[in-house]
Design a binder for these strands. Structure first.
Lengths: 341, 341
DNA sequence: CTTGCTTTGAGGTACGCACCTCAAGTACGT
DNA sequence: ACGTACTTGAGGTGCGTACCTCAAAGCAAG
């Protein structure tokens, strides 16, 4: 009734422990007939490899590197904190993670950073970087060196990455539009504040947002994006102007990096309390916005979940173990004042 | 630079391995001075016990029992499935879980079931049962026998349970009201469909719902609860009547067990598409409701998270290990058509 | 038959820890 | 100072697996 061990397999298959071991770890020097015998015994007994014992024996240590955007972003900072927290928790037994910060706007610097990673001293890499041809090549090289590579937050669909951990940007945008449409009563315009930091994600969100708004809420008109390009002062000026001359403005959809600026502009300008504002990513700023009522809703993904998921997935990829999907699916969370975590 | 082991502690403290072991496992027969020396060494070296190796050596097997309500409930069924799924995953190494179904309406039967659990063949228990004096006593006995006891989904605040895994019902109700108020344009009435299955939870949700509706949306009036008492036919009849003579009815707040009945009644009755309906718990029925537009939103908790969290927490409680809170906090999820998982 | 190759067995050590025994040590009260 | 506790050390075994060595066996071709 108890769990079968390698010894049981050996006995059942009529071979020695060494042979079972060779089969289990795909080492050479075993005839196909013998391999099949062992496989059959494993099947028959329902043997499951004891991962913790295996890791103990192997004195395995997973070494992962996270490549994250540098510069001031509340979201990235929260993510970095979550990764460190997960690293410190028991979840990350036999695991060491280091993080590298790269300037997102500088493809050359990113590639230089990726070049610094090697299979020599790493088992896996998690990347939150924009996709460029150079990044594609760098990932191909990492894969050739046998590293596990996952895309984090922002997908790298045309690369050899093993996995993507994050939410679908289009769905996030669609969700925002649905909320916006249902929150706003009557016709009017919606301002979309974008950011250039993760261009493809912004684009996809906008796509999803526009699609739902057009299909389900034709009474609302989505205005052209205000692009921040991380220039805070310029963005504040534009926002002030738009808010001041607002006639039919009813809502603002703020995509991440401009959140704080939007909130400040609203506090500066009177009569904005009737605006429906939806922002991305739960940070101290957006949290406060929800509490004080400036923000109607926040669409977010759980950074803790991202961090833990990525560690588990990287580990399983290294072991060639299957990934337990339902646990790893990152959800598009809607946060209102009343369900703030 | 590598992780310190018991040997390092022994050397650092100037004692033998046996003594370190005695201290680590709180075995008797060590002078306080020596205990302090060992503790200091542990502190100094930053020793962290290798849980998997410890469990391996101890040949530890956790045996947990889940006590869940019997009878047809899509939510409970999903939860039971999630528990079995979690049990089968690698997450539940060295863990066996069994589930018991008890009739929720029969306190006597519940207590009989609880009496059948003993520290002899179990290490922990997860309970999703209503709180009664008899249940309190039964939990006290389980605690005396050294079992870990957690409340699942529905809290047992006045008992000796070690932990509660679930969401705050009041906040869930408040969230529902906030959504309802923002979704409905103009004045009107909101119907609340309750269920008697988990009385305290229903009450608390209602409390939260009414509080937010009164404070933030005085234009909306919450009608007295329709109580189902699990009598489907009777409930359908009442609903049909209310929907037919609706004058100012603008929304329905459905608390779980009546979800399917509410959805069917709406399909029967024409002109209900303008109603804002918010339900609890994501099930096949509510999922379909969202897709087809009958439902505006679903407030739910992730059953997979509940299942995995409870296993981790029970395990840590058995080991006396700290619980990694951010991972275990169950979130109040808002699900719309566009962010269906 | 020999030679050279591949396949298999037997056995050991190690990983980090739990838990046991036995002997020797120390502290305490009388 | 003595007996009677209580403390401590040394060492062993086992958990389930990885990985290594060495020898033996099997096999095929020459």
């Amino acid at each position: 009734m108890k769990k079968p061990t390698v010894h049981d397999i050996a006995r059942e298959a009529g071979v020695s422990l060494a042979t079972v071991d060779r089969v289990l770890n795909a080492r050479p020097g075993v005839r196909q007939i013998t391999v099949d015998k062992v496989r059959a015994a494993i099947e028959a007994l329902g043997y499951i490899r004891d991962t913790s014992a295996a890791n103990l024996a192997r004195n395995r240590a997973y070494r992962f590197c996270y490549v994250l955007p540098e510069g001031p972003s509340a979201f990235v900072e929260a993510l970095r904190g979550a990764i460190q927290e997960a690293d410190a928790s028991q979840l990350a037994d036999r695991t060491t993670v280091l993080t590298r910060a790269v300037p997102t706007h500088d493809p050359h610097a990113i590639v230089t950073a990726l070049r610094g990673l090697s299979g020599e001293d790493l088992d896996g890499v998690a990347l939150m970087v924009p996709e460029t041809p150079q990044v594609r090549d760098a990932i191909a090289r990492l894969k050739r060196e046998g590293l596990a590579v996952v895309a984090l937050v922002s997908d790298l669909p045309n690369t050899e990455r093993d996995y993507f951990i994050g939410i679908k940007s289009i769905s996030a945008g669609r969700t925002a539009a649905l909320l916006m449409g249902r929150f706003i009563h009557g016709p009017g315009q919606v301002l979309v504040v974008s950011n250039s930091m993760r261009a493809r994600d912004s684009l996809e969100r906008r796509l999803g947002f526009d699609a739902v708004l057009a299909a389900d809420f034709p009474r609302l008109e989505a205005l052209p994006s205000i692009e921040a390009f991380d220039d805070v002062a310029r963005m504040a000026a534009i926002l002030d102007a738009v808010l001041a001359e607002r006639d039919g403005l009813r809502g603002i959809y703020s995509m991440e990096s401009g959140n704080a600026v939007v909130l400040e502009a609203m506090r500066r300008c009177s009569g904005t309390q009737r605006l429906t504002v939806i922002a991305h990513e739960l940070t101290p700023a957006t949290r406060q916005g929800l509490v004080e009522g400036t923000l109607s809703a926040v669409i977010t993904q759980n950074v803790g979940h991202l961090a833990r998921s990525s560690i588990r997935i990287l580990r399983n990829l290294c072991d060639g173990a299957p990934i337990f999907e339902p646990q790893e699916r990152i959800r598009i969370e809607i946060v209102l004042r009343e369900n703030l975590p």
